[in-house]
Amino acid sequence: MATKKKRTPNSQNDSWVVIAADSVINTQKHNSDPDFVRLRNPSTGEASLYMFGSGDVQLYEVKAFEEDFHSWFVGQTVQRDGKLLFVTPMDPLYLILPYMIHSSREGKFQPVNQVVKDEDFPESSRLLRCSCSLSALHNIADEKEVGSQKFHRYSQERTLNWLKKKVEKTVVALKKKNFCVGEGVKSTTYVRVKTESDNQDEDYLRYAHGLISEYISEELSKVLLKHLGLTELKSPNETEPPSKKRKLSDKPVEAGEDYTKFNSADFARKPPKKMTTAQKTLAKVDKTGMKPMSSFFSPKTKAEKK
């Protein structure tokens, strides 16, 4: 027992602890069951795990909250995998956007069902069945109606305005929650304490931009930053390491991002260097969604994280 035991892979895991929006299990309206599906992650372009609620009315994001060396007791059983999955409602427009942008290369107005087509991710077409998808397309595209049919063409202007509102809304939520997003946070024990700094508003804006950037391409993230009147931060070394910022640091498996600082897209996709002191305190809300589903349902390897 004294020597460090090599951990055996957790291959028999067939159980997951989930915190899901009530609407997932609300079966009043629909008879069909929700589906976990893999769709193209709008930020990474890779497969991510999402969920369609019954009747495909609502899209959900699946995010894993995970800390090293945790396990569950559920009733009279042990579950080795200490992950906690969150299933939260997601705006399908984020997932439709990359297809819209891609199709804009032709510069034509097109029917949206021809735009959102993906051989690699056949379930993508279900995005258009979500209740708010079609009615919200004007946020990212110009619309043209010919007869009874609608045609769309990507509009960066509309998209940036839409994203800006998203960022602003996120700022409000961050402030309400008193999330500490600035540089004043030195100790992990005081993350909720507000710091009075001159550029606190900018800190919030950058943080919110970072959160939104997880749902858009790197390229668009940079344009959005400019649209918000912010400049790219040059180096993450000039500021304190991400691990000290906040404990609920949101860390996708592939795109280890620190929202507070590394919003400069160059850094946004680099995993943080080491999790030394952070190990104990830093929560890793990694995105299960960013891994292929196969790995979601099998042991998570270290290699994926680092």
């Binding site: 994001e61 939260t88 998203k166 961050l174 404990k247 609920l248």
Partner: peptide, 14 residues
Amino acid sequence: MAMDWPELAEAIHG
């Protein structure tokens, strides 16, 4: 802290 995620997600996705 993780329990705050749904509220933040609501702002991002609402």
